[in-house]
Design a protein around this nucleic acid. Structure first.
Lengths: 233, 233
DNA sequence: TATTTCAGTTAATTATTGTTAAGCCTTTTA
DNA sequence: TAAAAGGCTTAACAATAATTAACTGAAATA
């Protein structure tokens, strides 16, 4: 199985430009899916995980702006690059307000596009969080060992699942500090779209249940920010 | 919501990139002045106050490095971000030695630029409004613990939401002193436009309700200025 | 005193979070 | 290898938090 750099969703209705772009991006070791209208692209987006979207503004069925708006609703941090034939002022502003990361006016060189993607990649890689070496955590009356993925209280122990364990480890490592939603999601789930977010919430509920024996422990939510494993003294 | 409202001096001779950048920065609620050569930018800098400069390295009349040097002579703490076409090591070193806060190699994504501006602003803001270490506050008969985000009265306790808590903390820290509207807004909401202002008023109402049991406490408004948490003795 | 700007309150709207359970794979077990 | 169990995601619905709207009153301007 080949390791790809990025998973790219490409929406471009000009078949010529589309396939040339696809080839060019694939030559850079990316995985690319090309769709020739906004609706198809939207369907694909919902089925798979992409790292970045490159959207033509003028497309049949669903234009690039509309598509981008819908995409951002689900995954508000995914990088989007618009391709546009004209550099109209209003177009540009509309694109930017939707949250475009970049804007390319046709015609452009593939090299330029690749460079911009690289820039986005750099940022994604920078955001990757470091591995946590610590394996033993004190959480109020509890102890958690992330190697055995086991939570101890008095003489009882509770084995956690992979996700439960990863989340608790992150929380415990950042104990009494805010653990940002985005950071937790990227580090445990690899992306931070709507559904992984909901998934994390489910795990927060589970962890709260595991930890409910010690009243001095609380996983508090910081609205719009993340969670904090609060250990009162 | 990543909002920063800054006065930005932008010097970039490529009209296309220049206006895209201007649009993008303005959409983030900043005030931007764009100049297409170093001399014009220098004149503008001397007439007005800017919070941050974004300078292309290669410009007519006066290059970015020279301009930066002159700017730093006048205001040695102003943050400067250089834009450069090539990622030449020597350019980078020269830029940093002049005191660049950051360095962007074209092409770059808006997101990347925004992130860097955010980072710089965080530094500035941290220096301006230091984190309040204190976590226990006496408010008349009440006690407030900002870590637990809980307000205590006799043997009752009231959990506050994130925003309620942040606002009360600020007020309590500045107890019997005036807390400026814009300072509170910037520190809690990140900006001080009309709507965040209205939002804060709503929270003031909420806090007044929480605190109404002790008649010696009052959140008074200083018209056009801000609020004061008044504790009568 | 008329007018404008600023503040206070309540309600409506929108966004985010909490919880339970159903569904779908994957792994284990019989 | 069919059935069961475990783990994770998704759906659905409930509850909470935050923002925006709408309206009312107060203070400043001049």
């Amino acid at each position: 199985m080949k390791e790809f750099n990025l998973r790219i969703l490409l929406a471009e209705d000009d078949p010529n430009l589309g396939s040339v772009l696809k080839d060019s991006l694939e030559l850079e070791d990316n995985y690319v899916e090309l769709y020739d209208d906004g609706e198809k692209a939207w369907n694909a987006f919902n089925k798979e995980d992409f790292d970045i979207c490159i959207l033509d503004v003028m497309m049949p069925k669903k234009d690039g702006f509309t598509l981008a708006g819908e995409i951002k609703k689900v995954d508000k941090n995914i990088p989007i690059i618009f391709l546009t034939a004209k550099s109209m002022q209003e177009d540009r502003i509309k694109g930017l307000s939707i949250g475009a990361d970049d804007y390319m006016t046709k015609p452009f060189s593939f090299e330029e596009l690749n460079l911009r993607i690289e820039a986005i990649m750099r940022r994604i890689n920078d955001a990757k969080s470091p591995v946590i070496e610590q394996t033993e955590f004190e959480i109020g009356k509890y102890k958690y060992n992330s190697d055995y993925r086991t939570l101890y209280l008095d003489n009882t122990e509770q084995k956690l699942t992979t996700k439960e364990g990863e989340l608790l480890k992150l929380l415990a490592f950042n104990k009494n500090q805010i653990l940002d939603r985005d950071i937790a999601l990227k580090s445990i789930w690899g992306n931070d779209n709507y559904f992984t977010g909901r998934s994390m919430d489910v795990y927060i509920t589970k962890l709260r249940k595991y930890l409910k024996e010690d009243k001095s422990i609380e996983i508090v939510n910081i609205h719009g920010k993340g969670f904090k494993l609060l250990i009162k003294v």
